[in-house]
Amino acid sequence: MIAFILRRLVQSVIVMLAVALVSFALFRFVGDPIASMVGQEVTLAERAEIREALGLNDPFIVQFWNFIARAATGDFGISYRLQQPVMELILSRLPATLELALVSGILAFAFGVGFGVYTALRRGSWVSGTIMTVSLIGVSLPTFLIGVLLIWVFAVELQWLPSFGRGETVYIGNWWRTGLLTESGRASLILPAITLGLYQMTLIMRLVRAEMLEVLRTDYIKFARARGLSNRAVHFGHALKNTLVPVITITGLQMGSIIAFSIITETVFQWPGVGALFIRSVQFVDVPVMAAYLMLIALVFVVINLIVDLLYYAVDPRLRVDRANAKS
């Protein structure tokens, strides 16, 4: 067990380093940070000086080493654009993104499982067909358009919900700023959460439906029915329970796409999270922020992969045998 965890940890570190290397190699193509850092009056000589001072003229490998060495201590430098420590900047924006991701994830999961179970049990009914078809709209229009349309309808025309931002926020502890505890904060969350969750909901719903259909055919469900258990007990007590393990796993692995789409959603709704911060940083070639963001993403998915692996390891005894064989 310990050897397995150690091996996975080493692999994770390698993955992190690879992500850092690749993303770092890409930054030189994103643009020239100096151009967006200084005004139009600054002379070419002065630009060259700033470039030198920032170490942008150092060989690639030196820049990379400096970055890794400092990143290892949690120091990602200072934002070119906002002149603040990157770590602080990202931590201050992270709660907004996590709250949005969490709420949209819960929405997607609740509706996804609900609709999925319904459409599996009532396969062929017109209601199921309608749900299946309508839910596809969420994956058949680009996220940005869905967001803009929601703003138009619910903020401008109906004036039910705010069009941008997080509303009033309050601090929990020192740095976690939440919008969940204020009325305007909760209202502001609704449209972005729907926009972000729609895609996931469609995915989860189809997954649950497919798994349910599989499970419902298995012998043990037939036995359960034969034992005279009620439909309700069979469907929810047995079938759904067995369905949820793969669904939760895949949903966990889908964190990446939630984070990616949060970039779009946050931009459309001016949601002050890390995704919007990243896109602004790309526009201004704020390399320290871009690097730190990508490392954060890498960390998130490495951790998720690790957890999933460990869960599998704990749950599925066959894996242990496989590993043991593979090692010998």
Binding site: V15, M255, I263
Partner: peptide, 9 residues
Amino acid sequence: VQLTFPSIL
């Protein structure tokens, strides 16, 4: 790695 890395990114 690829599966978890945001495709748009």
